[in-house]
Design a protein around this nucleic acid. Structure first.
Lengths: 224, 224
DNA sequence: GCAAAAGTGTTATCCCTACACCCATGA
DNA sequence: TCATGGGTGTAGGGATAACACTTTTGC
């Protein structure tokens, strides 16, 4: 049975695609799926898919991410809408893209839905992707790096409890430079966005580190 | 004759809407049209309309702006995509919104197309708008103000030649505060984005002012 | 006692802010 | 000569950047 939906004027299809970042093995990585259907079958692409007709855009992004990869509860933000003609060989497709950040715990990846395989790729080793997804990744990365400097977005990479050295490590990976330990601590504590948990982590043959948590983990604050 | 376009799955309609700002009579103003068709006939709204099936999104935004208001050659940047269900009573509509900036010259407004009337409104006096257009305006304004502090976006309000006092006036209107003349001049010249034209403007019973132009008027530079 | 990461203050530099007077012109 | 906006420099305060040693633990 094939029902059809008819309109007086031609309508484009609308999809969402998600660039999900995490920090894994001291590198910035992002999640790709191997496409199980045409077009670009067998090629790597961003998780995403078609908007349902009564579904909010953000809901669609989260649903597709969850369906294709099993990942839920990420920080999600709208990135940009790509819509030049012929970006999809099937029909006119407008893609509303999102980028997402997740701590490197809760990661039981499972391929499902349209995805044959799901994998984290280090940002430096991203292959050629289906559609215009390489440009989407580029833009998401620029936005992430820009937001680092004027918001607390990097906290979205942290697990519930973490040490200041771990947090500094995340900033160093993202900014791709060594930071001064004392200056980093002064700066990050002055933001007044993280607090001591009172717990310490002993973690090898050295002094245990004080654990911290984000005071308001739901919010990304604008700083400066 | 009514041709129809049919799809296997339901498709939303896609529109673009544009928030066009200018500075007129020492106030931030934006362009609204009075709707000539249903829904919301007779109410004020943003210029915009349906995407044609082979048309780029940005082209659609510029085309609708031009068709409904006669304005062309503005600085245009994508803002956000609004798409929650029921934001349009007719059918599911995804709106890719843009904001635009224009100098206060070249303004032969003419209502046309779906617009019964076109008018500049001071930002503080915006009426209740059709659809969710008030939230779009709010977001555009926040983005504009934010970009002021880390980019040269304000130059897009300037005509080809201008004095430093005029430029300072634009910043004062946007930031809604008086600025120190000497500090403003030091800062703006240090950006190295404007240059003297060599011309002076004599403009009343006082010393003539040096004219400046934007070195690279096409580009909005990130500063700081 | 040694290896390894945690933790901690001070100084110099740069940038931003505050602030007041003379200049060129037209009437 | 007067009214009007155009044009100019300096000093103080606050934030940022550079920099090295002691502490706590496990083995």
């Amino acid at each position: 049975m094939t029902t059809t939906f008819c309109y007086q004027y031609p309508h484009p299809a609308v999809t969402t695609d998600v660039v999900l970042f995490t920090i894994l093995e001291t590198r910035l990585q992002l999640l790709l799926i191997r496409r199980g259907g045409e077009p670009f079958r067998g090629e790597w692409a961003l998780p995403g898919g078609f908007l349902e007709i009564d579904e909010d855009l953000e809901h669609c992004a989260k649903r597709e991410l969850s369906e294709e990869t099993g990942i839920t509860d990420v920080y999600l933000e709208q990135l940009y809408t790509f819509g030049y003609p012929d970006r999809d060989p099937r029909e006119r497709v407008i893609s509303v893209t999102y980028y997402a950040l997740s701590p490197p715990d809760r990661m039981e990846l499972r391929a499902a839905s349209d995805a044959d395989e799901v994998r984290w790729f280090p940002f430096e080793e991203i292959p050629r992707l289906a559609f215009d997804h390489n440009s989407i990744v580029e833009l998401a990365h620029r936005r992430l790096i820009a937001k680092l400097t004027y918001s607390t977005i990097a906290f979205q990479f942290m697990p519930e409890n973490f040490t200041l050295s771990e947090l500094q490590g995340v900033y160093e990976i993202l900014r791709n430079e060594k930071l001064d330990k004392r200056n980093f601590r002064k700066w990050i504590l002055a933001l007044d966005q993280i607090e001591e948990t009172g717990q310490k982590r002993r973690n090898g043959n050295h002094r245990p580190a004080m654990m911290y948590r984000v005071t308001n983990p739901e919010r990304v604050e604008i700083i400066r």
